[in-house]
């Protein structure tokens, strides 16, 4: 797993994707931060954190698009799949690498909070709650993106497919509002990433939401492993 992890992190910065992601994240969060906090002279950063949800919708697919599709296209998956490592450690290595790059962006929001703290009282618990929420949301999104990437050989399709999948997971609560059958609507709302994430931005740290994102991550990583496994049998 270590070898994969190291190789992935290197690849992020060799292929510019790492830089592009970090730049875009800093730019996006920076704009949101100045518009929602600095302009009002407020230390309340919930505006930025809830806005980031939409930025991640676009940025995470960029981060995950090449993870597995590129290996297949370059035939390097033959090296990885015939090496004495398990599929789980292969997928986890790639997941952890993407998480680390992702975290670089997320940690930037702590810097914003630190800057604001010089001018007023910052509710640090809320900030850390938000960071945890952002990390959990990112983990689940990365797992989704990797699953899509494992299904294709084409990076662009992986990116667009990842974006579409995340959009559906986001819109699922909007769809729920037009479903007349009450219990189905309820299930849809419960599964919505947006509904699960927004409590974090209000400063509500609900353990069931934490569990939701962890479960989603595990399920999508598991599916990714199954896709790789299945490919051997087809």
């Amino acid at each position: 797993m270590n070898a994969i992890l190291k190789r992935e992190i290197r690849a992020y910065f060799d292929s510019l994707i790492g830089y592009i992601y970090i730049t875009a994240f800093f730019a996006g969060s920076g704009i949101l931060f100045s518009v929602s906090s600095l302009q009002y002279g407020s230390t309340d950063m919930s505006g930025m954190y809830s806005g980031l949800f939409y930025i991640l919708l676009v940025l995470i697919p960029i981060l995950t698009m090449r993870t597995l599709s590129e290996e297949k296209r370059q035939k390097t998956d033959q090296l990885l799949l015939t090496a004495p490592i398990s599929l789980t450690s292969l997928v986890l290595g790639k997941f952890v690498a993407a998480m680390l790059i992702y975290s670089i962006g997320v940690c930037m929001t702590i810097v914003y909070a630190t800057v604001v703290s010089f001018f007023g009282a910052v509710s640090w618990l809320t900030v850390f709650g938000n960071v945890v929420g952002l990390l959990l949301l990112g983990a689940a999104y990365i797992a989704v993106g990797m699953l899509i990437s494992s299904l294709t050989e084409n990076q662009v399709i992986a990116a667009i497919g990842g974006f579409a999948a995340m959009l559906v997971l986001y819109l699922i609560s909007a769809i729920a509002t037009i479903i007349p059958v009450d219990w189905i609507a309820r299930i849809f709302t419960e599964l919505s990433f947006a509904e699960r994430y927004s409590p974090f931005t209000y400063g509500v740290f609900d353990f069931s939401n934490v569990l939701f994102f962890i479960s989603a991550t595990v399920i999508f990583l598991f599916l990714t492993i199954r896709v790789l496994e299945r490919r051997r049998w087809s």
């Binding site: 190789r7 290197r10 690849a11 390097t76």
Partner: peptide
Amino acid sequence: FPPLYLDM
């Protein structure tokens, strides 16, 4: 096809 990472 040798499984090479061309960027390395």
